[in-house]
């Protein structure tokens, strides 16, 4: 790592082709904290609160991984990344993992040399417009000025959508959600497009959210999930199974309230295996026996995290929809702990 750090300092881009060889786990343990790449501020998903503590749906996953690896959900340092800088940050080793509304696509997985460690939110791209515009469908947007976050899949979907519908538009590329908000509210763009969860989160921060509508069209599939560098399978496994542990915990009814009770031992062997009272799944990952216990204890199970940060009772108000457990008709599904 030292070698690549030196090199990184010397390249103008600050891009170090970090070694993708195994060792992120050892690095994190040696550092004593997890370096997690999050967004630059998307309320509900990742945003610092008034005390400067990061909180949100994506942040909770970072905390769960930190708890699983180091036993301490606070042992995380957050690196805010834009749509543009996130991949370089991960590839160069600046962050250990990304949990940042990142869409799992073929080229990112294969060509950009990352490993997606599951899906924590099934999303799709949508459009938000002011109500006063009188638009009720995305098909009526011919000639509109559209704000897009540059460096995202939404940029490509947008080009495809307008081309397929033989419509014209004026793209206004912007780097962060905050800039988009400014331009959109001032009327410098008619439409703001990004993942629908992001639209809901942005709309929640408006002074008069009711003056804006999210159009019904969903023009793409945006499976969002955490990702790590390709080639470090042990580390990828840790992130993947931490997410799975949170999902399984909801399915099996393990909550932050009853986890201590359940950790004493239950009749359900899968709960016992997850919580480390039976078998040694943690050891297989190179972690402590209590890894999943710590991860779930950090912020609750998947459902609890969802409800706390982005659920229907929050200002963002997202329903579970596709993100309900598979037995409730959603797509959230964890492979078995066995």
């Amino acid at each position: 790592m030292k070698k690549s750090a030196f090199f990184g300092a010397l390249t103008v881009a600050g891009f170090a082709a970090a070694m993708a060889s195994a060792g992120t786990l050892d690095d994190v343990k040696a550092k004593g904290f997890l370096q997690c790449g999050v967004s630059t501020g998307l309320v509900g998903f990742a945003a610092p609160d008034s005390n400067g503590n990061w909180a949100g749906f994506d942040v909770s996953l970072c905390r769960a991984v930190a708890a699983a690896v180091l036993g301490d959900p606070q042992a995380v340092k957050f690196t805010p990344t834009t749509g543009k800088t996130r991949f370089t940050a991960l590839a160069s080793g600046e962050v250990d993992m990304l949990a940042r509304n990142t869409t799992w696509t073929f080229s990112r997985d294969v060509d950009l040399k990352f490993t997606f460690d599951g899906i924590n939110y099934y999303d799709g791209q949508g459009f938000m417009v002011p109500k006063s515009l009188g638009v009720s469908s995305a098909k009526e947007l011919d000639g509109a000025t559209v704000c897009i976050q540059t460096g995202t899949t939404t940029e490509l979907n947008l080009a495809d959508f307008f081309r397929a519908n033989k419509m014209k538009y004026e793209p206004v590329p912007i780097e962060t959600n905050a800039e988009a908000r400014q331009q959109f509210l001032a009327g410098a763009c008619d439409v703001y497009t990004t993942d629908r969860s992001g639209l809901a989160a942005t709309r929640a921060t408006f002074e008069n959210p009711d003056n804006y509508v999210v159009l019904p069209e969903v023009i793409s599939k945006e499976p969002l999930g955490p990702l790590t560098r390709q080639g470090d399978d042990q580390w990828s496994d840790i992130v993947r199974w931490t997410l799975n542990a949170l999902i399984s915990a909801e399915e099996l009814g393990i909550t932050s309230a009853n986890i201590d009770e359940l950790a004493k031992g239950t009749n359900n062997p899968e709960i016992n295996r997850i919580l480390g009272t039976e078998g040694n799944l943690g050891g297989m990952l190179g972690l402590d026996k209590k890894w999943a216990y710590n991860a779930i204890k950090a912020g609750g199970n998947y459902g609890e995290i969802f409800e706390k940060y982005i659920g229907e009772k929050t200002a963002i108000g997202l329903s579970r929809g596709l993100n309900a457990q598979w037995k409730d008709g959603g797509l959230i599904y964890s492979p078995p702990f066995r």
Binding site: T11, V12, A13, F15, A17, G83, K84, F87, T88, A91, S107, R108, D111, L112, K113, T150, G151, E155, L156, P173
Partner: peptide, 15 residues
Amino acid sequence: AGITLNQTGREMETL
């Protein structure tokens, strides 16, 4: 060095 870099992941080449 913005969108192309990001969509192709070719940091070294584009820079």
